[in-house]
Design a protein around this nucleic acid. Structure first.
Lengths: 251, 251
DNA sequence: GAAAACCGTTCCGTAATACTGAACACATTT
DNA sequence: AAATGTGTTCAGTATTACGGAACGGTTTTC
């Protein structure tokens, strides 16, 4: 895997793909050209190729591009290959029902939380498909539950990286976070006190693999007034109990 | 969009990506090299690049490659951009509950059925994530419901294309299918009589856009003995009634 | 247990091609 | 009507992706 075993035109094309986001799902050629500092004609060729292969679609109205439905097929392959969602879903719905809060399930990927599923307590909207959404480790319940159990040097790398303050409550100081991680390890659960979204509190419990590494976490979250200290402890216990059969069973 | 505006190395790389499937989620370099008739070193470079960008992961045990979790992020963007899943889910769960059968929801994409969601009648497994799964139009309930309402020339193109007989019941004769499509248009629903999976029957109702084109379909399916002629008609009516508020409301 | 066959990986030279940069047609704005 | 914006096309050149052969390692094969 030497450095020059990279197909540079492919890497460039993939960086074009990654310009698309939830906030900017439709992009024009000049727009991308400016974002990446590439020639317009280069971007045009790349986009045309992606389009011809089905990974992008062109809106004929404004001739802007958006991600195509073919990527869903790739996602289906990878998610069915892992199969974590199907394994956890029954437990998530039970947690949502018994805590009467929204239950989230995410895994650790590339030093981020990768959300897999959300289960709702109400019958109306049973689950929400958030497969693929991402969030930082340092300011979310799921993230902190996993961050606290990372190998020390990896945890320090995350703490040392630049952090964005999503709300006034977001902890951006490495020392404060480091101490909190110690508490998380002692308590067995992590708390997000409106650090990612204002007014939302969250309790999360880590999930460990057979080899004892953190691979995932499960949380419940909701409006902050509903999450007083006693409720937090009770919910954490409940999640841990329900997840018991899954602990140290996966790899 | 002339022919030579294609980045050939990118198209080649994407064809490598498409070697991965549900049946073969892990592939080695020589394997791909044989599948596509490419040089091993070429495949190696492409796979290395995908890996370095996070779209593939290498299993260190057997040094085989699999689709990485980064594609989930792309899928999240495209699915949240369309938002069809969230719009239909409440109706799907209601259909599953009232018919006591599994309810499927799929859209038309590239002359195939693209499955979006499956809702289950039982509380245990509320939904199944099948976002990205694909199936042919000519032998599935969802597919035939949409196929019957395609523009005539497009329908004929599908009928003329080579067809695989999944079961002994699969209709591969264009004339027979053409006649069945006429019935589908008259009845307002399509039936799959074990044509895709043996022992499974299916009733499907099409969904139309504001401009009157078919864009999607909703079905219920299950073991064939449960689907006698009266049940089929009853379920078709039920689905149509429940979907009423969505008809001609989307684009 | 040796040998053959397979694997992934590395390297170099060259043929292929991806990119630069300028020009075009068209739309919207000034 | 002029000026800026857009997406698109094209030809030449400098880049680079690829073919082919070789290497070290593991797994078959007999």
């Amino acid at each position: 895997m030497t450095e020059n075993s990279t197909v540079k035109s492919l890497a460039k094309a993939l960086s074009v793909l990654e310009c698309f986001s939830v906030d900017k799902p439709e992009l024009g050629i000049s727009e991308i050209s400016r974002m990446l500092g590439l020639q317009k004609s280069t971007v045009y060729n790349i986009l045309s190729t992606f389009q011809r292969c089905g990974y992008l679609i062109k809106n004929p109205e404004n001739s802007k591009y958006a991600l195509g439905l073919k990527v869903l097929h790739l996602a289906y392959i990878v998610s069915s290959h892992h199969g974590l969602r199907d394994m956890f879903l029954p437990y998530l719905t039970r947690i949502a029902r018994e805590t009467k809060e929204v239950c989230y399930f995410g895994i650790l990927d590339e030093r981020e939380v990768l959300y897999i599923e959300a289960a709702y307590p109400s019958m109306q909207q049973q689950t929400r498909n958030i497969l693929g959404e991402r969030a930082p480790l340092y300011c979310t319940g799921l993230g902190k539950a996993m961050l606290a159990h990372l190998p020390p040097e990896e945890m320090e790398a995350v703490l040392a990286a630049p952090k964005r303050a999503f709300t006034g409550c977001t902890l951006t100081d490495a020392a404060a976070l480091r101490q909190q991680m110690e508490e998380v390890r002692q308590n067995g659960y992590a708390v997000d006190n409106m650090e990612h979204e204002f007014g939302i509190r969250c309790v999360a419990v880590p999930v460990f693999s057979t080899s004892g590494q953190v691979i995932a976490a499960v949380s419940v979250s909701g409006p902050s007034p509903r999450f007083d200290p006693e409720t937090i402890i009770r919910d954490a216990r409940l999640i841990a109990d329900i997840l018991q059969p899954l602990q140290y069973q996966l790899n």
